[in-house]
């Protein structure tokens, strides 16, 4: 047993060092966000000392219309989360439970679209939204989510297939329609996938940069990532302010991760790429 004990200690040492290397930029980001200007210049790459200069946060937030950007970010994040979860679940349920000819072929098309790069359609989508009179509005960031996402449809379908078929049969005997079966039986049961899909959609909408940079031009509708990118070029010298603002932008993702930690890992891993 000695060699295996040795190997375990060895891998633990590698893990500790690796974790430190990985966490370092993150910790430095937090430390720097709490330093005074002079403190940043003196401390350089080290984590200590920190002046606990919380004023950076209030300064960083007041140096641009933060609350307005936050509002825009929330408007382009929360509705897509709700829409995409509901419609993906509905479509996934149909693929899993409603018998129909050709369902297999169509599901194949759904899977194939997962491989399609979204970037291919940015030019025609831009023209489409221009025709719809939606330039410089938040709609182009919200509306596509009404129609579900192929990956989430796949997740929901896989989950629903694992639920016993008798659920549907019993409900049909009781006279429930397909919509009732979905809404009152399957949707509530798929809570793990709802959480996983909601978190993933939140992360991607919240951090989205390409779409806002195409559609949003006026100050009024800027989202936080867009504002942060502009802030970067304008305040590249004030490191502590920059880091404080970045942390505020990242914080919701971290909070949500800790709230939903169990579900994310469970939800993604079961997808059974196997």
């Amino acid at each position: 047993m000695a060699p295996s004990r040795l190997r375990q200690t060895g891998s633990l040492v590698v893990l500790v060092i690796g974790s430190f290397v990985f966490a370092y930029p993150f910790l430095w980001m937090i430390a720097t966000s709490l330093r005074t200007r002079q403190g940043v210049a003196e401390a350089g790459v080290s984590l200590w000392p920190v002046q606990w200069h919380f004023q950076n946060y209030t300064d960083g937030l007041s140096s641009f219309p933060f609350w307005q950007y936050l509002g825009n970010s929330l408007l382009t994040t929360i509705p897509p989360v709700i829409f995409t979860v509901l419609s993906s679940s509905l479509v996934g349920f149909a693929f899993a439970r409603i018998p129909a000819r050709g369902a297999g072929v169509i599901f194949g098309i759904v899977l194939a679209t997962m491989l399609l790069p979204g970037e291919v359609t940015i030019v025609p989508q831009f023209i489409l939204f221009r025709e719809l009179d939606m330039m410089d509005t938040l709609y182009p960031l919200i509306l596509p989510s009404l129609f579900g996402s192929a990956f989430f449809i796949f997740l929901f379908r896989q989950f629903y297939l694992r639920l016993p078929q008798s659920l549907t049969d019993a409900a049909i005997v009781d006279g429930a329609g397909w919509f009732r079966i979905w809404w009152s039986i399957y949707l509530p049961l798929s809570q793990p996938i709802i959480v996983a899909a909601a978190v993933l959609q939140f992360m991607s909408s919240w951090n989205n940069f390409l779409t806002p940079s195409i559609y949003l031009s006026s100050e009024r509708w800027k989202t936080l990532p867009l504002a942060l990118a502009g802030f970067t070029s304008a305040n590249s010298t004030d490191t502590s302010l920059l880091m404080a603002t970045s942390i505020v932008v990242v914080l919701p993702c971290i909070v949500i991760f800790f709230l939903a930690q169990r579900h994310i890992v469970g939800g993604i891993s079961f997808t059974g790429s196997k």
């Binding site: 690796g18 974790s19 990532p225 970045s246 942390i247 930690q261």
Partner: peptide, 17 residues
């Protein structure tokens, strides 16, 4: 958790860092 956390710092915030 430590190894997973950085993957939450994506997009613009990651580039800034």
């Amino acid at each position: 958790t430590i190894w997973y956390l950085p993957s939450l710092v994506t997009g613009v915030a990651q580039v800034v860092l």
